[in-house]
Amino acid sequence: MSAIEIRGLNLYYGKFQALINVNMAVEAKRITALIGSSGCGKSTLLRCINRMNDLIEDVRTEGSVKVDGAEIYKVRPDFVKLRKKVGMVFQRPNPFPLSVYENVAFGPRIHHMARGSELDGIVEASLKDVLLWDDLKDKLKRSALGLSLEQRQRLCIARLIAVRSEVLLMDEPCSALDPMATLKIEELMQRLKKDYTIIIVTHNMQQAARVSEDTGFMLLGELVEFGRTEEIFTKPRDKRTEDYITGRFG
């Protein structure tokens, strides 16, 4: 069974149709990349999976999205549970204006998962998973806003690990970072792959080729092609994919 299964998904912002009949099956514990030029709907598609599009006024969706076999559109899901399971990393690292510790502890606290020394344990383990612990173990009480961009993005990932998310949606997680920081975040993604299903939206085709096992190419709201990354990049079936991959447009 696929971790995420999308069938016949249409999405409208008012009158504008941003997603057109999208079908996609994402497998668990792999990295799936969504590529395409800006405005093609890849972020919108990503935000369908944790229903973040619901925050925007005047959005209408048709079709079906299943996470772990559970329908999240036709029946009203438990948003708290859904978003705990399907975590999101944003384009601009967005730690809360709280201390490093409180940032990681935020999720476990709101979901009443742990307190006291147990919570300390979760914070430590999560920061270790994103390789921040050694740098920050003496600075847990400092404001997270004082960290570097790369550290902030790692912290945002640690926040998700702390609530034991199963799916990580990454919306251009490296676009605010320099190449070295980008490389480190990509290494981190490889480390996390064994435990998490990761979907990454990226502007950067090379990044998709480097990190992902599966790739979907989107154009003007359609998912043109979806398949193994090496196939998409070496022998695409669709002419439009080929044109985009070879840089004829985009």
């Binding site: 973040m52 708290v80 549970k81 978003r83 975590g87 809360f96 606290r109």
Partner: peptide
Amino acid sequence: PRQYKEGAIALGATHWQTLYRVIIH
């Protein structure tokens, strides 16, 4: 910043939790 709010909601925080744990700070 809107990102704080989005970050909290994407973590599964309710509107109220977002308000008193993040926005207020």
